[in-house]
Design a protein around this nucleic acid. Sequence first.
DNA 1: GCTACTGTGATATTTCAGTAGTACAGTTGA
DNA 2: TCAACTGTACTACTGAAATATCACAGTAGC
Lengths: 132, 132
Amino acid sequence: MLFRPNPSSGVPIYLQLMEQVKHAIETGALRSGEQLPGIRPLAEELVINVNTVAKAYRELEHEGVIELRHGSGAFVSENARAEKLADALRGTRSMVAAAIERLRARGLTIDEIRRLFEAELARLSRRGQRRG
Amino acid sequence: MLFRPNPSSGVPIYLQLMEQVKHAIETGALRSGEQLPGIRPLAEELVINVNTVAKAYRELEHEGVIELRHGSGAFVSENARAEKLADALRGTRSMVAAAIERLRARGLTIDEIRRLFEAELARLSRRGQRRG
DNA sequence: GCTACTGTGATATTTCAGTAGTACAGTTGA
DNA sequence: TCAACTGTACTACTGAAATATCACAGTAGC
């Protein structure tokens, strides 16, 4: 199962779905032009409502991540960025894992690590480097 | 001003406040036993409701981060963890910043970096290493 | 053309988190 | 005792999210 939002996490399901789709594309699990699961089948599989999936897809289209073709389905956008990203990400996962491992070795909990990263990312955002 | 949640960020104010209090404790900006701002003064300063601050404080107490004394005020819990953390965190900020910098050098946006970390942290969480 | 699949759209309902206003209650010190 | 501070509790409003249900519309294959 490629996607699995957690309904009791507090984070809206449609947002989780969006993040997971994006992440799948970034890591290459979903490739440019590839078709995504249909709204109805996916909703049934995840045991959520059709509208929730539809909302996620609509937002993703609005962000240019995917392309919706009425009657045909949803497809990953054909942009060069995805390909570049897959390349750029090759090896970064181990890099990230290593960084986290070092922090855990210092005795930090996952939550503490998360706050550290968020604080640092927030600092960057504030410095004019707007979100992509 | 020590705390400043952003009401229009989408993230609940009381959660932001909680994170900021924790972060302040972890970095040593707030020390063990130290008194936090009163609910009303703080609410007024941040231009939010008293209950919002109260909720944040209540949750923090429930997590064992602070201690509430009815009639007296809110105080940072006297646990050894805070002291250890301040030590453990000395130097980690530059470590985190360096990791992020490497990713940015590869052309990733802040959002993409965030998803990478979240995915990796989620992986850890799922493996039985529950949140602290 | 028909069928079975796709996404679109509208509407109503429900639930729940977040926030707010206000009254209550404990503590402290003059 | 009183005043001024602390946190606590209750009630209510609001809006976002999710659900359910339905009808509509484009596409592809037979």
